[in-house]
């Protein structure tokens, strides 16, 4: 049974910088169900990241409505948005965005700290999340001591550790070579298979083709929104072994 997780209705985002007004989003309406796997594509400057920030409750629309899990997010205050980010949303960024001085374990614990999870349980869950992304042997490494692919996997573990409703990934493979990028996509495949909703922003066709649905945007508007009949699931090399 289909159950909408994300519903946008005529969402716009306008930036004013000095005399300029930039219409980053011009009226986006879309619905994403629980456990969909969606890729958002579009040329540079088309508004993909802006859309992601709104989806992730990091930013609020200039107009329009946004329901997340049936809740009207546009009426929520800062505090409540922080709580949604903390409980429901896992972010994965192009530049990883890990705390540079913290170990992998500490980075993954971070969302649990703000959720008020006691230390022991926090450590256990963070370790399990790191093991799930194949980094069980890198718990106490700092980001600078890890490869790009490993850093992104730490970031994914950090997104996973809260057992989010949705993982939002903005160009997650943008800073990785092809092999490392593929590793990440395999990981998403596994996470999706376990029931998590995934939204990936990319401008690479071969990355987008892992998703089951592809939304193309241009100049702040949806250009097309189509299912992907032939998703890449047969992976070219054996998948990372997850526990």
């Amino acid at each position: 049974m289909k159950q909408p997780l994300i519903v946008l209705e005529k969402v716009t985002k306008v930036y004013t910088t000095g005399a300029d007004t930039i219409h980053a989003l011009r009226g986006i309406s879309l619905s994403i169900d629980v456990n969909e796997y969606v890729a958002i594509m579009g040329p540079s400057g088309s508004g993909k990241s802006t859309l992601m920030h709104i989806l992730g409750c990091l930013d609020t629309p200039s107009s329009g409505r946004y329901w997340f899990g049936g809740r009207d997010v546009t009426t929520l205050d800062d505090e409540e948005l922080a709580q949604i980010r903390n409980r429901e949303i896992g972010f994965v960024f192009q530049l990883f965005n890990l705390l540079p001085r913290a170990t992998a374990l500490k980075n993954v614990e971070l969302p649990l700290i703000y959720a008020g999870v006691p230390a022991e349980e926090r450590r256990r869950r963070a370790r399990a999340a790191l093991e799930a992304v194949g980094l069980g042997d890198r718990l106490f490494h700092r980001p600078t001591e890890l490869s790009g692919g490993q850093r992104q996997r730490v970031a994914i573990a950090r997104a996973l550790v809260i057992e989010p409703s949705v993982i939002l990934a903005d160009e997650p493979t943008g800073n990785l070579d092809t092999a490392a990028g593929l590793d990440i996509m395999r990981l998403f495949e596994r996470i999706w298979a376990r029931g998590t909703t995934i939204v990936v922003v990319t401008h690479e066709e071969h990355i987008a083709r892992h998703a089951r649905r592809i939304i193309r945007i241009r100049d702040g508007l949806i250009e097309s929104d189509t299912p992907n009949p032939e998703p890449i699931t047969a992976l070219p090399s054996p998948p990372v072994q997850l526990p």
């Binding site: 990091l58 800062d78 505090e79 922080a82 980010r85 972010f91 965005n97 705390l99 969302p111 703000y114």
Partner: peptide, 16 residues
């Protein structure tokens, strides 16, 4: 600033 952004992204509230 970036650290603050990261903390906010994972759910830190203003008062934290």
């Amino acid at each position: 600033t970036l650290e603050i952004g990261i903390r906010k992204a994972v759910g830190a509230r203003r008062r934290s």
